[in-house]
Structures are given as structure tokens and as C-alpha cells.
């Protein structure tokens, strides 16, 4: 089938533009303008056309031939640049050293920003804590079997008369510090480093980061918590997330719940990340136990609130698909430079 002039016009210039060597260019030229070239055959066929058609097509075909020749000339110059004008745009750019955030910082900063927008302040606290703030004030008295839920690093004392100090096992003691110095209503989150005396593996660390949340006022409810935590996870994972609460036990809340979210990777269909359940266990929460309010001098009859805690590493592992919790503190720059 002979190509029409329109078809030739439509394809030839793109083909010329897409050549990368003089040889490729010559092949294209030959295809259109060579002895058996498509445009050449159009020109040859003119004789067989009616006078009227000849008058219309003839000049157009001639003009097209000139334009193709011109375009080939231009393109050829690109390939035949002299050493003086040679400029290799494909040469690699000069390397600029850029730094990288640890993914843990990215996750924590995202979390802070989301909660700031929900009206939560971001509060800091120390890593070395008193036994009172870490346990007793949180309704976990000494010898209570619940203390075994937190394996603790204790610090040596210079004298046995000093009160025992420890590395905080959760960020919850900051709840105590904050409530002792502030009056409700308030909403805070507390990101920070925490420690557990335990063997490390792909899912456990002896040092990790937690984000604690606390909202206290006269009318704060568990249903409010569900709303806030749904908003948080939906924004963190940039998709609509469903939240499921299940009964659980933490001495400093009552009722206490486990917080599950629909798996952001498979959207509840089931995948390896969620061990084919469609749900991910993302944290603990509940309504602040009246004993905790007692410990900080609030009136538990008029004040109530919710508290929650999530693991920053766990959320980062889900968000970025990181398989091993130990990578965060591995100091491996090949890992950090991915973020």
C-alpha cells in the first residue's frame, strides 16, 4: 500500500527526530527519498494522475521533499558537531552531597504534624525516670504482676538511700509530669526514646521510640478517641483506614483497648504484612484510670480523658515496608540513604 502524502508528513519528521546516529538518519532518508522511497514513489506516480490531482499533489510532494531534505541536514549537523562545539548533555551531573533523615525522624515528624493539626501539643520528657513516674503513679505498684509487662533497665545508685531510677519503659511517665504542671483541658502527644530489658530480634528492640497521646477534659470520651485515632492513621497512611478496638489491659487506663487498623497494604484483603488477617495491631489505648488522676491531684469525678501509645518503629516499618526493627539503630548509611 502506498502511503499518502498526509501519512508521510505525519510520520517522517518524528522518525528523523528519533534517530541517534548518522547511519540511522540515512536509513530514514532512504526509506522516504531513496530510489524505492515512499515519497519518491508518490512523485513517480504523479504521471498517472488526472491533471487536476497532479496540480494539487505535485507541488505539495515537491515541498515535502525539500522539507525532508532540510530536516535531514539539520539532524545530521547534530551528529557531526566539531570538537569545538561538542557538548555532551549525557555527561553525569556534578555530585552534590545531600543528607538524609532517618526514617524514624520522618515518621515522628509526620506524626507531630498530624497531631498539631488536630490541636495536640508536642511535649518532651526525660529518658531517665523515677520509679514513681514510670510505674507507681501509673497505677502499677511494686510487686504488682502487671509490672512484668515492662522489663526494666534499672540504674545503679551511688547510695542505697537514693530513690531508684530507671530508663523509662514507655513515654507514659510524661503524662504524669505534664499533668502535675498543667491544668485540663489539654491535648498532647509525647514522642520519645524508651527502653526495655529484652532480647532483640526482627520485631523486638531494647531501645525504641514511642508516641504517647493524652487528651484530658470534662467531656473527653472513648468515642472521641476512636475519631482522633482514625483521623491520625488515615492521614499517616494516606488512605481511609478503619479502626477496630478490642478489650485489653493496661493498668493506667480503664477501660483499656487494643487498637487495630485495617492493613494499609492490602486494604483488609489479607497479605503477609497483616498475616492474612486484614488487620494490624498498632497500639494500646483507653480511658485514663482514676488512680492516675488521683496521683497527679486531679479530681477524677469531674476530669476524664483518653490516653494511647503507638510504637514509632512499628509504624515506620509498615509505612516504608522495612522488615527488621534493628535497621533503625543499625547506623547503616546504605539504609538511611534510602530515605
Amino acid at each position: 500500500m502506498i502511503m499518502t502524502i498526509n501519512e508521510i508528513e505525519h510520520s517522517v519528521f518524528a522518525e528523523i527526530h528519533n534517530t541517534h546516529t548518522a547511519k540511522e538518519l540515512e536509513e530514514v532518508r532512504a526509506r522516504y527519498l531513496g530510489r524505492k522511497g515512499t515519497l519518491t514513489s508518490v512523485l513517480r506516480g504523479l504521471a498517472e494522475l488526472s491533471l487536476e490531482d497532479r496540480r494539487e499533489i505535485g507541488p505539495r510532494a515537491q515541498a515535502l521533499r525539500d522539507r525532508i531534505e532540510e530536516a535531514c541536514e539539520d539532524r545530521l549537523q547534530d551528529f557531526e558537531a566539531t570538537s569545538e562545539t561538542f557538548f555532551d548533555v549525557s555527561f553525569p551531573g556534578k555530585k552534590i552531597t545531600v543528607g538524609h533523615h532517618n526514617p524514624l525522624s520522618l515518621l515522628i515528624q509526620d506524626t507531630e504534624d498530624i497531631f498539631l493539626s488536630l490541636g495536640f501539643s508536642v511535649v518532651d520528657g526525660p529518658e531517665v525516670e523515677t520509679e514513681f513516674n514510670n510505674f507507681d503513679a501509673l497505677n502499677i505498684p511494686a510487686n504488682h504482676p502487671a509490672r512484668e509487662m515492662w522489663d526494666t533497665f534499672w540504674l545503679k545508685r551511688a547510695h542505697n538511700t537514693e530513690p531508684r531510677k530507671l530508663l523509662r519503659t514507655h513515654t507514659s511517665p510524661v503524662q504524669i509530669r505534664y499533668m502535675q504542671t498543667h491544668e485540663p483541658p489539654f491535648r498532647i502527644i509525647v514522642p520519645g526514646t524508651t527502653y526495655r530489658y529484652e532480647a532483640t530480634d526482627a520485631r523486638h528492640e531494647m531501645q525504641f521510640s514511642q508516641i504517647e497521646g493524652l487528651a484530658v477534659g470534662e467531656t473527653v470520651t472513648l468515642a472521641n478517641f476512636k475519631s482522633i485515632i482514625t483521623a491520625f492513621f488515615s492521614r499517616l497512611f494516606a488512605q481511609k483506614v478503619e479502626i477496630r478496638l478490642r478489650p485489653s489491659y493496661f493498668p493506667f487506663v480503664e477501660p483499656g483497648v487494643e487498637v487495630d487498623a485495617t492493613c494499609p497494604r492490602c486494604h483488609k484483603r489479607g497479605c503477609e504484612l497483616c498475616t492474612f488477617t486484614g488487620w494490624l495491631e498498632l497500639g494500646g489505648a483507653g480511658m485514663v484510670h482514676p488512680h492516675v488522676f488521683d496521683a497527679v491531684g486531679y479530681n477524677p469525678n469531674t476530669i476524664q480523658g483518653f490516653a494511647f501509645g503507638v510504637g514509632a518503629e512499628r509504624l515506620a516499618m509498615i509505612k516504608y515496608g522495612i522488615p527488621d526493627i534493628r535497621l533503625f539503630r543499625s547506623s547503616d548509611l546504605r539504609f538511611i540513604q534510602q530515605f
Binding site: 498539631l116 490541636g119 501539643s121 508536642v122 511535649v123 467531656t219 473527653v220 475519631s227
Partner: peptide, 24 residues
Amino acid sequence: GYEELGSIPPVTVLLHAAQDESIA
């Protein structure tokens, strides 16, 4: 069943949300 529990946005006073200076 907590699955029946609604998700109700809090009605609350407007608070100035800020970061601790150390964190900022």
C-alpha cells in the same frame, strides 16, 4: 462490642497547639 462504638469527633475548646522548644 467496641466495633459498634461510633467515631465521634470531640467538641472542645480551641487550644493553642505548640511544640516544646526542645522538640521544635
